[in-house]
Design a protein around this nucleic acid. Sequence first.
DNA 1: GTCTATACTGGGATAGAC
DNA 2: GTCTATCCCAGTATAGAC
Lengths: 203, 203
Amino acid sequence: MPTRQLQPRKTPRQLRGWEAQERILEAAARVFAEWGYSAGTTNRIAEAAGMSVGSLYQYFPNKDSILVALVRRHVDEGAARLASLWADAQDVTSLDGRVRLLVDAVIANHRDEIRLHQVLFEEAPRPPELLADLHRLEGELVEAVAQLIRTDPSVRTDDATRTAWFAVTVVESLTHRYVSSYPKGDLDAFREELVKLVVAYLT
Amino acid sequence: MPTRQLQPRKTPRQLRGWEAQERILEAAARVFAEWGYSAGTTNRIAEAAGMSVGSLYQYFPNKDSILVALVRRHVDEGAARLASLWADAQDVTSLDGRVRLLVDAVIANHRDEIRLHQVLFEEAPRPPELLADLHRLEGELVEAVAQLIRTDPSVRTDDATRTAWFAVTVVESLTHRYVSSYPKGDLDAFREELVKLVVAYLT
DNA sequence: GTCTATACTGGGATAGAC
DNA sequence: GTCTATCCCAGTATAGAC
């Protein structure tokens, strides 16, 4: 049995667990963005994080778990941005203004880290459990928007959930597509047109 | 120097080159759809095609070339379907009818082989040269639709190309998304709503 | 805690027989 | 033309020293 009490409780140079995890995730984000998922090897990630593979595997059991943690973090950030949308939606009452709010939030979720976003949400193999989570989150967003629609007399629909699904999905997928196809494109012009499209659909 | 003239010109059991290629592509389509790109190994493809890896490599220089050929074939089919759309567009003069034509063609491009479509266009690493081709093809479709828009007095726009891009992209990406998320969904209802959305945007 | 070296695996591609 | 056996490499993950 090793004599644990002879070890110092803590040495300043040692990384605390969460710090190391953060460093790894941050490195993985850069590596995946640059190399894609399969070429984004654990060795490269470790190197980018300034540690060795051995150390890396002390904080994550395998490569997949790094991906999952990264997606989770990414999604959490996006969810937070969308949640803060509700606060703002209280002040904005015009349909046009509210749509603009949604569009802005979604664009914000995409504008940086485009390539990472692609790798995370298209290329990488996501475990079914993670997919279920994403699906659930999307459902919540749709339901929230549906609720807004129901209380807005200027929107005519016979199925608020369906209408909300189209509105949310159109904003997400068009933004994704635009940003992927034209990374240097004119985001302002795009936003205006997208708002126009959604408003036209809703009224 | 081998004595070629002693070989029979052709033996019935031998596959002609294009037949073998077809068999391989057809097998690859099934394997990729079932296993995804990375797990869709050349060995599995060969097995599904009823031949050995060695034979497979006689018809394709590497795995990537199989993928490229598959995407090309897929895209050609889609392009053909969209091209035949022009013939029909002569007879249909209402905006609603024309949008429906476009939507139907795009849905047809997606309704079968959903999973293959995903693998081909999302998961698999596509060489830049192929991406350029796809981009060019999309540009052509957009320009064709823009031309239709310009001659249709019921569509109000100050930039036909931009409007066409939104119309085409919205149909493609929403269909893709819907079919991926709800493989068993009600396609008819979806189509109706999508047509409504596009028509609302265009008028 | 950190490292280096390496075991192990799986898949792409080829050699060489028939 | 077809096959089987195998080379080879890259990448994940671990062992074991410090």
